[in-house]
Amino acid sequence: MDFAAILSAAVTGAIGPVAAAYALAAIGLNIHFGYTGLLNFGQVAFMLVGAYGVAISVSVFGLSLWLGVLVGVLCAIVLALLLGAPTLRLRSDYLAIATIAAGEILRLFYRSSYAEPLTGGVFGLQRFANEFYELNPFPAGEYGIGSITFSNRDLWVMVLGWGLVALATVFVYLLIHSPWGRVIRSIREDENAARSLGKNVYVYKLQSLILGGVIGSFGGMVMVINTQSANPDSFDPVVTFFVYTLLVLGGAGRIAGPLLGAVVFWFVVVFFDALLRQAIAAGYISSDIIGAPQAGAVRFALVGLGLLLLMVFRPQGILGRKEEMVLNGR
């Protein structure tokens, strides 16, 4: 087996555009789950409306890509209002179930033949980010160190993705280290206490849902700009669980948690993927047990197992403090 190849694949995965997209989604979720204590299990819905906001604006209505980004952000705000307005007054369980249901509703509607004129149905929409790629300042060619290389195209997407991640991280840092952030964290601890001190908890939760949702929608945009293809089935509920896994891995409620989580998560996932495929190709694992097609399923199973073990044995993640988990009475 070629461990150098496996390792370079893993590093490429850890710093590639996909990891950046997931990091953005996780930064949004961190505002919801990590700081406000909102159980949003439909982060993928925000990614979807962001992605399709861009794709539909450009492919169907012929608008400019940048206007499409604005449309995507507006869609995320509307979605947050629609989801939050009825559920944020209720127990946290309701938001969890309403958000995951909303994610599925949107995916099903977007992929239906009914919506095909607008969304392209199961086929999705393609090639809507040309405007972005035309701005690519990197001359054609491969860039990188040793066997870790990216095309000029990938590099440009990475600049966008990680640039947005950096911006969002600074933004969240400023928010959280302010009186606004203090109110948000107090809601996570005990919303009735916050209420008894005159804070309008409902409005703060709604603001948190909107902010995190908008950041999540940027994650969706980076995802589809990277592939130049928006397909409803890439916005499966499992995406949300991946985002949760990497957020918990990095440390929920820590500024750098989503960033570190995304890098480590994709490193580990791609590493095991590559390892497994090589092992199958080299005949170490009989293809009767796990053939190449099942390798994808193994990835999901391992992520599931990882999430389970993480929550059982180290729920505070890499960056979290153990003592804070003990204080977490929920």
């Binding site: 499992v238 999901f300 199973a301 599931g304 197992l305 999430l307 389970l308 073990l309 059982v312």
Partner: peptide, 9 residues
């Protein structure tokens, strides 16, 4: 969240 991990697995 543990039950979500179990479900995926």
């Amino acid at each position: 969240i543990i039950s979500i991990g179990l479900s995926l697995l």
